[in-house]
Design a protein around this nucleic acid. Structure first.
Lengths: 237, 237
DNA sequence: CAGTGGTCTAGACCACTAG
DNA sequence: TAGTGGTCTAGACCACTGA
């Protein structure tokens, strides 16, 4: 409703950022437009180049601006917005949602993974993996079922005793922190053991998050997280 | 494998960031640990406080560090990692995946939304909305079906003629850019018109992304995007 | 080549907060 | 209240890139 604020006088970098963003979002500067150089903006806002630079850098990181040496700064033609998706400790996410978090280990032990899984992880067929199945409860109701396949060599010290009481993600966070992960999100018909554990009908559409994680170049393992019916991922821009 | 790199001598902020991150990820500094003050790090890296400050700020933004005035800087006990999820123009996403993008308008016109929808959007019951149904094709195969509910007042100028050839998201990007959006991701059994348009069996588990968007404080509308079977969202850390 | 952003310095003052 | 990070200045040199 209000036109872009008339900017003048002293301002800190956050105010400058707000003002510049206002000009973009209100359409004063359109996608593809060239905006003034740092020196000009610095004069306009009565501050140093470092300060406007900070605001401009922040807007560029957020995807609103494209910056090139000599080419100057332009408003992004295609602002590919990023929605940040949290990758939390499961029990904490449940508590944060206002529920009482519960946990139950269903199975743990060395298994030969499904033949389709090994090549997907870049492992030679026939590699035994540590398999973990567990259910996370919210207020006593099944909330998420996790299936985990871990490389035994990289998770030495993780015993069944520990897993009886401690969810694997918490142990891993402290002992084998990941440095890289690939995440996929899809809708599936859950395998029978999963729908059983979720107390759901076998054909219930289920949200599956698969996360393969590495520590440096070394594979840690793969997590399949099945969500109870109606559970949504929520994020925003 | 390699222990934390021995850092010494001059370095730019990216090198300092790399070095500090190495100490965190290799476990030299553990979650909860207090790390040296800016002044000490500046002396250690033989640079000014601004430079180490930049590296530390970056690591804090990324979630690896917690910083408090007087309290100092500590390694995050619970690094809540964020996986960035792209919010692209649909046709561009399809092209980027290496397919030929197609588009077909199925329906467009003013409708009374489902009674459950109006309150969800904060609208008085009985508000007529512009409804758009369309299918996006990849190599001629149905890929995504969109259902859109738009506030007519905020999308004036968007005619059926335009929608015959231009997907709504492209028109909206140029004419009614959003400033805020809420996104939910869930698995559903698609309504019959959707499964038909996707050439899928009625009970196929389907990934549904719902996006409600605003321009400043003003509601633009709501998008429901149903994904064809097997289509996954992919992201990483 | 010249112009733009990217980075660094050496210093200063301020805002917040733990003790 | 003292110590820490947050920010700003005024200046400098450098790296990249468009003409």
């Amino acid at each position: 409703m209000t036109p872009p604020p008339a900017p003048s006088g002293k301002a800190d970098w956050k105010a400058i950022r707000r003002d510049l963003l206002g000009r973009i979002q209100s359409g004063v500067w359109k996608p593809g437009d060239q905006i003034p150089r740092e020196v000009e903006l610095a004069a306009h806002y009565d501050c140093t180049r470092s300060t406007v630079g900070r605001a401009l850098r922040d807007l560029a990181t957020a995807g609103f601006l494209d910056r090139k040496r000599k080419g100057g700064t332009t408003v992004s033609a295609n602002p590919v917005r990023k929605a940040p998706l949290d990758v939390p400790i499961i029990a904490e996410a449940i508590r944060k949602a206002g529920h009482v978090a519960g946990y139950q280990l269903l199975d743990a032990g060395e298994r030969l993974p499904d033949p389709a899984l090994a090549p997907e992880l870049g492992l030679p067929a026939g590699t035994p993996l540590l398999f973990i199945a567990a259910v996370h409860l919210a207020d006593g109701i099944p909330h998420q079922v996790e299936h985990r396949w871990l490389l035994p060599a990289t998770v030495q010290g993780l015993s069944r005793d520990i897993l009886e009481t401690t969810p694997a993600d918490e142990w891993l966070l402290r002992n084998v922190p990941l440095t890289r992960a690939q995440i996929t999100i899809e809708a599936v018909r859950p395998p029978a053991p999963v729908s059983d554990a979720l107390h759901a009908a076998p054909d219930t559409p289920t949200l599956l998050i698969t996360r393969t994680s590495w520590r440096q170049a070394r594979l840690i393992g793969m997590l399949q997280l099945y969500h109870a019916q109606g559970h949504r991922l929520v994020t925003g821009i």
